[in-house]
Design a protein around this nucleic acid. Structure first.
Lengths: 158, 158
DNA sequence: GGGTATGTGTTATATTATATCAACATCAAA
DNA sequence: TTTGATGTTGATATAATATAACACATACCC
């Protein structure tokens, strides 16, 4: 079993490499990686969990980076649009991408008990593609979110 | 290509069979299929599309079935819990199940252009199960929602 | 340097959802 | 047939999530 979000681990490196990767991508693509955007990504990377917009906003406010909802939503829009962050629809929450720009269809495992979320990689959508073809539907993006119990909570409760 | 929500079709039968099926299920399981619950399912079946709670509420209000949000949310909770209705997380909307109690992992195709939603059947989760096993996660339910273009809108725009 | 596009600050509001508590209904056991 | 357990509804209030609209500032490009 490889390291994942259900483990406890030091993810200083997660933050560092995530920021570097975003930085590089923005430079290469002529995107403005402004202080608000930078800080929001940094918070999401360092918390290493799914956070609501209103969980992030107070931190920005403390740091003088904006205290109204539109500030955080605009930053999140940018980060989601460019693949640095994903929205977890089931939770109305946002989480830093752990496989930036690997051209993946992100899928999430959401623990009901502890609310931790892990992003998995890989091709999930073969069956879905088939279903779509049957009705002539063209898939552009997919939301794939599994709800259940993570190893920690599962074993704890048995 | 079989009949589906992207076709225009007379779905009088969808409504009738949906209601009958729910009715039977409730009797068999000792559930109270009360007027509010009945009417909400009927509305969702007859509109044959994903609707927000606040789209449904005015109709209930007109008919004297309750005008406060908790009324509709409680009815929706009941209908979702027992599999008559699904929530489309991506849209924060609700849609009548078209395969009631076939023990399926519901998956949706959501058209970006016309907002129509089609529920597909079938086993979608093989790859996801594998990913979950790798981290020791136990899946209880899955949200699978594809966003894209339906045949009508796709051809219209080309 | 001037013009255009993009990003930010701010106010206000829209949309989606839940907590709480009292009243009433249903049903089965005492 | 009362009692009590459970479930449903009615009503008020509020929480949580998200966007519209507009003025101003900054970045970028020629």
């Amino acid at each position: 079993m490889v390291a994942n979000g259900f483990d406890t681990h030091d993810h200083t490196e997660c933050v560092g490499s995530g920021m570097t990767s975003a930085e590089t991508y923005c430079v290469e693509h002529g995107l403005q990686f402004t202080p608000v955007r930078r800080r929001v990504l940094e918070i999401l990377l360092s918390e290493h969990k799914a956070m609501g917009a209103y969980d992030i906003l107070p931190t920005l406010a403390e740091e003088g980076l904006g205290k109204q909802p539109p500030v955080i939503y605009r930053a999140l829009d940018f980060l989601v649009k460019h693949g640095f962050v994903h929205k977890v629809e089931r939770l109305n929450a946002y989480i830093a991408c752990t496989h930036p720009h690997s051209d993946h269809a992100p899928a999430f495992l959401i623990c009901k008990s502890c609310d931790r979320v892990v992003e998995t990689e890989g091709r999930i959508t073969a069956g879905l593609n088939h279903a779509a073809q049957n009705v002539g539907f063209h898939i552009e993006a997919a939301v794939i979110e599994a709800v259940g119990q993570c190893p920690n909570c599962g074993t704890a409760q048995v």
